[in-house]
Design a protein around this nucleic acid. Sequence first.
DNA 1: GTCTATACACTGATAGAC
DNA 2: GTCTATCAGTGTATAGAC
Lengths: 211, 211
Amino acid sequence: MSAEPTPLRQNVKRRENERAILAAAEKVFAEAGYGGATMQLIADVAGLPKANVHYYFQTKEELYRQVVSNIFDIWLQAAGSFDGATGPAEGIGAYIDAKMELSRTHPDGSKVWASEVMHGAPIIQDYLENILVEWTEGRARVIQGWIDAGRMDPISPHHLLYLIWATTQHYADFGHQVETLNGNVPLTAAQWDEAKTAVKTIVLKGIGVCG
Amino acid sequence: MSAEPTPLRQNVKRRENERAILAAAEKVFAEAGYGGATMQLIADVAGLPKANVHYYFQTKEELYRQVVSNIFDIWLQAAGSFDGATGPAEGIGAYIDAKMELSRTHPDGSKVWASEVMHGAPIIQDYLENILVEWTEGRARVIQGWIDAGRMDPISPHHLLYLIWATTQHYADFGHQVETLNGNVPLTAAQWDEAKTAVKTIVLKGIGVCG
DNA sequence: GTCTATACACTGATAGAC
DNA sequence: GTCTATCAGTGTATAGAC
């Protein structure tokens, strides 16, 4: 009934397995940290024997690096909200929305990223020093331009960005604490909207933009 | 020359060793996470044989619990800035200052706390559900009182607190990223003041308080 | 390509001499 | 109280049958 595995089929299987392993790894690394995560548990969550995980990703560190790398890419995509904005209200507002949405849909990725940075970014220091520095300086210049044009208050662009990163990612990284303070139930869709509105209201008004 | 160890002397030695172990543990747990930290490394940093660490703290988990517990206490002390404030400008401003100062002087503790919460607070969930919930609800009522009195904008107190926690702790938890974006050098005293001012400016203006 | 069995290193914890 | 030596358990990684 079933045909012999063709090269195409094998490639499909390979991609499926790699995706399953990466998804499982993101979850396990987020829940247990790099040191606490085990290849055995990642294999179990992915539904594969441990040796297969090592077949696709030779070492634990290589798998971890791939996970962190994927997260960083997603993170950078949200940065697009900044570009093509006609002013601070639109640009910063859309950026906050995008990052809040990422915290809602991708909490595990955010946690892995936070963990990596908290431990001194041993794996992705080169990303930080190159891509992130470049991105940050570019956006800081955009913000400074808005300030020079009198479209918002003279706030240090870097500290403004830190405040936005910290607050939006808090809903993912400290999601467990937020849930506990919410009576041990996850935020509802309405509460997520409330959070987005509260953050945007404070930030935009705080930098002197009407909204 | 030296006298026999008296009970007093032994107690002093005991306290010194415990303090050294706790300080080393905080540092190692912050840098490597719970799973990545080893009793051997903690012992080395503390300058003691590994067996001695086990003599004072029977298990790794017990030592970790003690570290997290200490951090939580320090965290709650900063909360005092809120009490006795005559209004939102003073209360929230002082609270931000206190939390920023904690991030500057106690970054390791902040990281351990963040790591613990990110992994679902397996050790200190009872603290969260009791002490933190109580503290948060109490302060939320204070803020709501200021709102009702027309002294600040009608912002959701919980989301305001999350924004303050996230932003102030970001300078500790993501200190490595901040440093990288600062040209690979730590923030100077002047830059810390700049950060404090930026955060307070955005938050206070953002909630409709003149300052 | 897939999976079982296993080598090898390391960790938390403890026993027992001092 | 202190420290050396060691055990039991677990982790990453791989060899080799299929």
